[in-house]
Write a protein that binds this DNA or RNA. Sequence first.
DNA 1: TCATACACGAAAATCATTTTCTTAGCTACC
DNA 2: GGTAGCTAAGAAAATGATTTTCGTGTATGA
Lengths: 285, 285
Amino acid sequence: MSDLLRSIREQMPELNPKEQTIAAFITEHPQLVVRLGITELADQSQTSAATVSRFCKNFHAGGFAGLKLQLATELALQPAADSYQDIVAGNTLESIVTAMEANHIRSISDTSRLLDPKQLARALDVLRNAGQIDIYGVATSGVVAQDFYQKLVRIGRRATAFSDPHMQITSASILGEGDTAFAISYSGETPETIDALRCAKERGAATVSLTKYGPNTLSSLADIPLYTSSLEEGMRRGDMASRIAQLHVVDILFTGLVTESFDEYVPKLEQSFQMVKKYRKEKGR
Amino acid sequence: MSDLLRSIREQMPELNPKEQTIAAFITEHPQLVVRLGITELADQSQTSAATVSRFCKNFHAGGFAGLKLQLATELALQPAADSYQDIVAGNTLESIVTAMEANHIRSISDTSRLLDPKQLARALDVLRNAGQIDIYGVATSGVVAQDFYQKLVRIGRRATAFSDPHMQITSASILGEGDTAFAISYSGETPETIDALRCAKERGAATVSLTKYGPNTLSSLADIPLYTSSLEEGMRRGDMASRIAQLHVVDILFTGLVTESFDEYVPKLEQSFQMVKKYRKEKGR
DNA sequence: TCATACACGAAAATCATTTTCTTAGCTACC
DNA sequence: GGTAGCTAAGAAAATGATTTTCGTGTATGA
């Protein structure tokens, strides 16, 4: 049940000339092939039905019907992972919803694919063992920082997230060994965030960065770089998809922390949850 | 290209007895049907091939082959949109990433499906014409509120987002006709947020809510209720997926605003972007 | 140059699908 | 109550698509 289209493409060079024509046609117009009959496909690729039938056998696709079936399922999976949709003037509401859905989904799956389990594990490690966790991020990334901060506090970790650059530096300057600094910036070039992380590093804290994929100042500075998928150029205000991707990573880190120490953290989560409720009840609601 | 399986299920009651058996078999074993011939399917459902063929015609599936094709593509799409994964103790990092990916993607597509274009349009309307926009939300929803706030400010809209309950009420109490209040709460039962929205409503402001789907205090209070998909019970800390879904809606609203008045807002976006850059340069970076 | 092997298409055989024809059961109107 | 008309549904015929067989032509190597 592996990727048929891919294996056709890969094996093309070793194929007979006629089979190459067939392979070429299939890889170039897969969605057409699905609707065609075997004779029509034979015509289109200047061969005979018999050759096409043999071709299918060679790829152990279970005959022509089987090939069409596999193609259909593979194609169905494609569009979801299709290219990012740019958003331009005059779109209808429906198309905005669809485009946004596609972009966000794409952004999440791309980022998942990009995450290196080793770096994730290291990040979890320094987060788990940190005395104090500082989270840096401004503007859009500040929102993500806030979110991470809230999560950490809820499981009883000592964390701070300032969006004020002065406070970031101030906080960074009192970190030390055994502490962890976590810097978020999509571009990886936000000066305020870079300064804060550099300061934290000088103080001996473990440093983690969360930036777009590719070389950038922030990730080169960090001990443990984490990446979100980087968007195509021209993408209108890429920060929407990037922020979703960043939160996705934050969720993974948080969940990683919680599951690693399930027994320790889950009661704390419940506790904080109950406490908010109780406090409200006492106010008479 | 709509959901064939769904339409079969929905139309079942109005079908002939024999057609019902066929429909039942198809909906119960769709992945089997894809591999079966028409006669085999006829045998399995105690009918004749002719009846199955007619059945396919009735559903405008383009014959039995067409039906199989559609089923195949729909089934291929299913697993990705499969049920929410619960996250429990002792998961490996890889499985956490996968589960989180599935949950977030599911959450985004479900929410997209749930959005009512009419309500969206109304929400855009009151946002576009608002003098002042107040955004309410505490804790997790506060992060989303912040995000929305930042976006609105960037296109030059007068907006505020307080996470402090007192400030929320204070701000709400100086709203008036022509203003808009936007309240975010996953449960729709957060007392602070409800209070703020009620206050805004009393002052004559247009009210929009963003809550989970289903009856809740906040959405019943709002002029324009918007919904995110609600998660199954037992889902560990549902607020992760819900926050992604809320941001998804915020992004759609924001994009809707921008595209509706493309020429007005895009220059402002560029402007704010350039200004931040310029300011940094002047500082000598 | 001949033998062998292989690719390929034509046509036959097979198999699946659709259509037509027929029957049985039902309803409504005489 | 009987009969005409309708519908559902299967049997069988017709159609159409796919696979296999078979034969030809071409290339390769002895």
